[in-house]
Simulated assay, not measured.
Amino acid sequence: MKRLFLLMIIAIGIAACTSQKPNTGTVTQTPINATTSVNENLAQGKVVFENNCGKCHGLPALEKYDDEKWKSIVDWMAPKAKLTSQQADLVYLYVSTSN
């Protein structure tokens, strides 16, 4: 539970410090914030992961990679998938808590 809370705090900090560019062609996501429940953020991360990552290639098993590797994968692939930093944070939150 501490790990999940720490990840949410980090995600909130990253989202607050980065510029948000509109992402046309994808579903608008609710920002990660303290009023959004962890389950809602995880559900949103799953939707972005499946809809954006899965449209170009097969989705890997979540347990295939550890948190550090998922971070590098999300950082590398998010620009290719045209994800906002908020969407990338949601995806990372989802994959890192699901592995």
Results as ranks from 00 to 15, higher is better:
Leu93Ala: 11
Ile12Trp: 03
Asp67Met: 05
Cys17Ile: 12
Asn39Gln: 10
Thr35Cys: 03
Gly58Thr: 10
Asn99Ile: 00
Ala78Gly: 13
Cys17Val: 08
Leu93Ile: 09
Val38Met: 15
Gln20Glu: 04
Pro31Gln: 11
Gln86Trp: 01
Gly45Val: 02
Asp66Thr: 10
Leu62Asn: 03
Thr24Cys: 04
Ala81Asn: 13
Lys69His: 02
Leu59Arg: 07
Gln29Gly: 01
Ala81Val: 07
Asn39Ile: 02
Glu40Phe: 03
Leu93Phe: 15
Met8Gln: 12
Ile32Pro: 05
Val48Phe: 03
Glu63Phe: 07
Leu90Ile: 06
Lys82Ile: 05
Thr18Leu: 08
Ile9Phe: 00
Trp70Gly: 04
Asn52Thr: 13
Leu93Gln: 04
Ala34Phe: 15
Leu93Met: 10
Thr26Cys: 10
Phe5Thr: 14
Thr84Gly: 13
Ser85Gln: 08
Ile73Thr: 12
Val95Glu: 09
Lys80Met: 04
Tyr92Gln: 14
Phe5Lys: 10
Val95Asn: 11
Ala61Asn: 04
Leu7Ala: 10
Ala88Leu: 09
Tyr92Asn: 11
Thr97Phe: 00
Gln29Met: 15
Val91Gly: 00
Ala43Gln: 12
Gly25Phe: 12
Lys21Asn: 13
Thr97Pro: 04
Thr28Glu: 13
Leu7Thr: 01
Cys17Leu: 14
Leu4Thr: 15
Val95Met: 10
Ala88Arg: 12
Asn99Pro: 05
Asn51Ser: 13
Val38Cys: 11
Asn39Asp: 08
Ala11Asp: 03
Pro60Val: 06
Ser98Val: 11
Thr35Gly: 00
Val47Ile: 04
Lys71Glu: 11
Asp66Gln: 10
Asp67Asn: 11
Ser85Tyr: 02
Leu59Val: 02
Tyr94Asn: 01
Asn51Trp: 01
Val48Trp: 03
Leu59Met: 05
Gln20His: 02
Gly13Thr: 05
Thr97Gln: 05
Ser19Trp: 07
Gly25Cys: 06
Asp66Leu: 08
Lys80Gln: 08
Glu50Cys: 03
Ser85Met: 06
Gly54Asp: 00
Leu62Met: 07
Thr30Lys: 14
Lys80Arg: 04
Asn41Tyr: 01
Leu62Lys: 07
Ile73Cys: 10
Lys46Cys: 01
Leu59His: 06
Asp66Glu: 14
Leu90Lys: 03
Tyr92Arg: 11
Ile73Glu: 08
Ser98Tyr: 01
Pro22Cys: 00
Trp70Asp: 04
Gln87Glu: 15
Cys56Ala: 12
Lys71Ile: 14
Ala15Tyr: 08
Tyr65Phe: 15
Asp75Ser: 06
Val47Thr: 13
Pro79Leu: 05
Lys82Ala: 05
Tyr65Glu: 07
Ser19Asp: 06
Met1Ile: 03
Ala15Met: 10
Ile9Ala: 02
Thr97Cys: 04
Ile73Asn: 14
Met77Ser: 15
Asp89Met: 14
Tyr65Pro: 06
Trp76Leu: 09
Val91Leu: 02
Tyr94Met: 08
Met77Glu: 14
Ile14Lys: 10
Thr97Lys: 02
Ser19Ala: 12
Gln44Leu: 13
Pro79Asp: 02
Ser19Glu: 13
Ala43Met: 06
